[in-house]
Design a protein around this nucleic acid. Structure first.
Lengths: 205, 205, 205, 205
DNA sequence: GATGAATGAGGGTTCATTCAT
DNA sequence: TATGAATGAACCCTCATTCAT
């Protein structure tokens, strides 16, 4: 077997994937440190340990690079939520998993929140960012609704889900802007108050 | 009466105030159309119908100009809330006024929400923006707490206020990102559900 | 007598002279603090306590303003030298007066030396500056030669005068660049050594 | 030999050095033609036949570029002096070499003198320029003192060296400002008169 | 595949100068 | 006479992008 077929892909393809992954990772970290505005191709390439020319070899444009970075963040959140969801059984446990996942200690850091806020701000004027942010929101909503609809009438479920989603977004924004501590406990407390008040007493048990 | 006495200020002084106001307004509109990133001195000056040199005659630096624009938005929100608060009597009415004010039809537009989101995103990496955004937040919290503390034990009041604030921020962000309609009614519904569940039945009546 | 003829000049003419004098003075001080490069019309007008618009009322162009400032410096040096020359009797005393005048404690300051150096540097590329600097040089040379020729053969006198002039210029440059002290005594010592070696023993006594 | 090994440096590194050298040279010439004030990045880049953007690729800042230009001049003077010093044997010969070097026909041109004067003027208000100019001065002094101290008591040597240095600076300034000819012979004559009067008769022979 | 050389558009800012009041 | 409003050219610098090697 001479060199070919790692995972059924030719070596060249593999390198391409690896480099793109590395660059997405570097972009993600640069976004955390400098925000969308301060994320230059130069800085990303430096963090990735490549020449800046190479970046354009793998990403046609800076926008593409940024999108890759944001998608990676997205993937991380997804993974966190999925891991928690796996162990959850009842609707209430599953709802708890979604919320816990969105405030996982490894995620709910000031740096990530800042990057997230920066991307959200950019999304208002940048369709490619907007797409990703909307996707994140839709998955959150769908996760919440899936279980809420099991214990609440549909229309009520939608309102509750929206309320929770609003609180989650608001909490992340607060995390980004509050230089002092805004802890995940502080963030989750009103969310649970809101939920407890709306879930049927025996809900999902 | 020979010529003088416009408000007791000489004409010259007036012009300075007028231009600064015009520029702040132009900045605000440019922020709405292009976001923080896309708001260049050139664009603001064009919208204001001035040369770009003149901008620096009235604002030492671009940061000063932007701050003026953001403060103007802030002032508009404040005015809206204050107008509603004046007519409010009971704590519950006053809380309602604060919430209604934050979703006044003239304010809760997609354009303004986009500008707001953009500024929030910038605030994560820009102390001058951060200051203004924190100020807005603190005033919101203080407005809410003032009345909540009248009807709830202090610690509970804080949590409820935080929950409402989170929802308001989350709603504005949703307004900015959702190209489809996200109405003020949709925004306020979960907020009131949250409040009703936490306010004592007879609260403020 | 209504208003006219102060010094045979109409009042309006007087004001013009006063303002020009004030501005020349302010220019001189600004040159000392910021150098030619850093001397802006704005800064000069501020120091003079006028609006910057007024500057162009009295000086057609910035170059004219600067020239006035440099000429004023020149006048100060001249006055210093003339005052000392008046009391001098013998050629040697007169030569001493010229040298002492060029290093008068009130003149040979770091600030003035810096302004002088800055103007000299500019003179290389600015004919109007060059004219003034050359005039200063020529008067120095003529002062020195007048007396040196009384005690030395003409050709020798020219060389000695040139040597002294070179040393004076070199000393002023040193004063400007040496942040540590370079005193007038240090400056004059080699000059006198040079002179003593070339003047006839009984010269001018 | 396959392609590599230009001085042991990869081609890439070579280009960087070449461009920096070219730019330093272009800066030097621009300084001669326009002075510090008139030396813009644009002009330098044009003279070097590059885009202005490229200048910032090789020099982080305009100040760095100017420093490189000044250092290059400095290096030229040094080389000239060193070449002459090599052939000198006795202290007197070595002193002569230092002086001749400072007035080498290829150096003591009006253009170079003008650039030098401009840089000196700038040095009064610009620490980075001041550093270079002081360095040049210190090397001159150390060169002179090294040999003067062999033939004169230390304190006397210092004064003589300072006198010579003052004369050299004064001569260069004269060269810059005198549109008519001020020749190297004119410059050196009083210097030698000064030296002969102070060196012991048999000095260094 | 990988580098960094090279370009050029665009940004913020300064400043001399003109002009209406 | 005096002010400062207004303009526009020029400057330094950053950055995404292209391209030869």
């Amino acid at each position: 077997m001479h060199g070919a077929s790692n995972n059924g892909k030719p070596l060249r393809k593999r390198i391409k994937d690896i480099r793109r992954q590395e660059l997405a990772e570097a972009t993600l970290l640069t976004l955390q440190e400098f925000g969308v505005n301060g994320t230059t191709v130069q800085r990303v390439s430096e963090r990735a340990g490549m020449s800046h020319g190479l970046v354009h070899h793998y990403f046609r444009t800076k926008a593409d690079l940024l999108e890759a970075g944001v998608r990676l963040t997205n993937a991380r959140i997804t993974a966190e939520v999925l891991a928690l969801l796996e162990r959850a059984k009842t609707p209430r446990q599953r709802i708890a998993a979604v919320i816990e996942g969105n405030f996982a200690p490894s995620l709910f850091t000031r740096e990530i929140a800042q990057a997230w806020a920066s991307c959200s701000g950019e999304a208002a004027f940048n369709e490619s960012f907007a797409r990703v942010m909307r996707m994140i929101y839709r998955r959150l909503m769908s996760n919440l609704l899936w279980d809420l609809k099991k214990v609440l009438p549909p229309q009520e479920a939608v309102v509750v889900a929206q309320g929770v989603a609003m609180m989650i977004d608001g909490a992340w924004l607060r995390r980004a802007l509050e230089s002092g501590q805004f802890t995940r406990e502080q963030a989750m407390k009103p969310i649970w108050i809101f939920l407890e008040a709306n879930l049927p007493k025996e809900a999902g048990e």
